[in-house]
Amino acid sequence: TTLHFDLDGKKLQYTGVSEEIARLVEELKRRGVDLKEIVRILEELLK
Rank of each mutant, 00 (worst) to 15 (best):
T1I: 15
T1K: 14
T1Q: 14
T2Y: 02
T2L: 04
T2G: 04
T2C: 07
T2W: 02
T2H: 08
T2K: 05
T2F: 03
L3C: 04
L3Y: 01
L3M: 04
L3Q: 01
H4P: 02
H4G: 05
H4T: 13
H4K: 04
H4I: 15
H4Q: 11
H4V: 12
H4W: 11
H4S: 08
F5H: 01
F5Y: 02
F5M: 04
F5P: 01
F5K: 01
F5E: 02
D6I: 07
D6N: 05
D6V: 06
D6Q: 05
D6A: 03
D6M: 04
D6K: 01
D6S: 02
D6H: 15
L7S: 02
L7Q: 03
L7N: 02
L7I: 15
L7C: 06
L7M: 10
L7H: 03
L7R: 00
L7E: 04
L7P: 00
L7A: 02
D8N: 05
D8M: 04
D8S: 03
D8W: 01
D8F: 03
D8A: 04
D8K: 01
D8Y: 02
G9A: 02
G9K: 01
G9I: 01
G9E: 04
G9W: 00
G9C: 03
G9L: 01
K10M: 14
K10R: 10
K10G: 07
K10Q: 13
K10W: 04
K10Y: 07
K11H: 15
K11V: 05
K11C: 10
K11A: 07
K11Q: 12
K11M: 07
K11P: 06
K11F: 06
L12G: 02
L12R: 04
L12C: 04
L12A: 04
L12Y: 12
L12M: 07
L12F: 08
Q13E: 15
Q13T: 15
Q13I: 14
Q13Y: 10
Q13K: 11
Q13N: 08
Q13G: 04
Q13P: 01
Y14L: 02
Y14K: 01
Y14M: 03
Y14H: 01
Y14P: 00
T15R: 05
T15S: 10
T15C: 07
T15L: 07
T15Q: 12
G16C: 06
G16I: 03
G16F: 04
V17E: 01
V17K: 00
V17N: 01
V17A: 02
V17G: 01
S18T: 12
S18R: 05
S18Y: 02
S18G: 07
S18M: 04
E19L: 09
E19H: 14
E19T: 09
E19R: 05
E19V: 13
E19I: 14
E19A: 11
E20Y: 05
E20S: 09
E20V: 06
E20K: 07
E20M: 05
E20R: 06
I21A: 09
I21P: 02
I21H: 11
I21E: 04
I21G: 06
I21M: 09
I21V: 12
A22E: 08
A22R: 08
R23S: 15
R23E: 15
R23I: 14
R23C: 08
R23P: 02
R23A: 15
R23T: 14
L24P: 03
L24V: 12
L24I: 14
L24K: 14
L24Y: 15
L24E: 15
L24Q: 15
L24W: 12
L24T: 14
L24S: 15
V25E: 00
V25W: 01
V25G: 02
V25A: 04
V25D: 00
V25T: 04
E26A: 09
E26I: 08
E26S: 09
E26N: 11
E26C: 09
E26L: 11
E26M: 10
E26P: 03
E27C: 09
E27V: 09
E27P: 02
E27R: 06
E27N: 09
E27A: 09
L28Y: 10
L28G: 04
L28S: 06
L28D: 05
L28P: 00
L28T: 05
L28E: 09
L28H: 12
K29E: 09
K29M: 14
K29Y: 11
K29N: 10
K29R: 12
K29V: 15
K29C: 09
R30Y: 11
R30G: 15
R30E: 13
R30H: 15
R30Q: 15
R31E: 15
R31H: 13
R31V: 14
R31T: 14
G32S: 15
G32K: 12
G32V: 06
V33F: 06
V33W: 06
V33E: 13
V33L: 07
V33M: 11
V33N: 06
V33H: 06
V33G: 07
V33C: 05
D34S: 10
D34W: 05
L35C: 04
L35K: 06
L35Q: 10
L35E: 10
L35N: 10
L35A: 10
L35F: 05
L35G: 08
L35R: 04
K36Q: 13
K36T: 13
K36D: 07
K36S: 13
E37Q: 12
E37G: 05
E37D: 12
E37S: 09
E37A: 09
E37L: 09
E37T: 10
E37H: 07
I38Q: 07
I38A: 03
I38H: 00
I38Y: 01
I38K: 00
I38L: 07
V39S: 01
V39P: 00
V39G: 00
V39R: 02
V39Y: 02
V39L: 12
V39F: 03
R40I: 09
R40A: 12
R40P: 05
R40M: 11
R40E: 11
I41S: 07
I41W: 08
I41G: 05
I41Q: 11
I41H: 08
I41V: 13
I41N: 08
L42I: 06
L42F: 04
L42T: 04
L42A: 03
L42K: 00
L42S: 01
L42M: 06
E43L: 04
E43A: 04
E43I: 05
E43H: 05
E44V: 11
E44L: 10
E44I: 12
E44G: 12
E44M: 11
E44H: 13
E44F: 09
L45S: 11
L45F: 06
L45C: 05
L45V: 08
L45M: 12
L45W: 08
L45H: 11
L46D: 03
L46N: 03
L46E: 03
L46Y: 04
L46W: 04
L46C: 04
K47F: 11
K47W: 10
K47G: 13
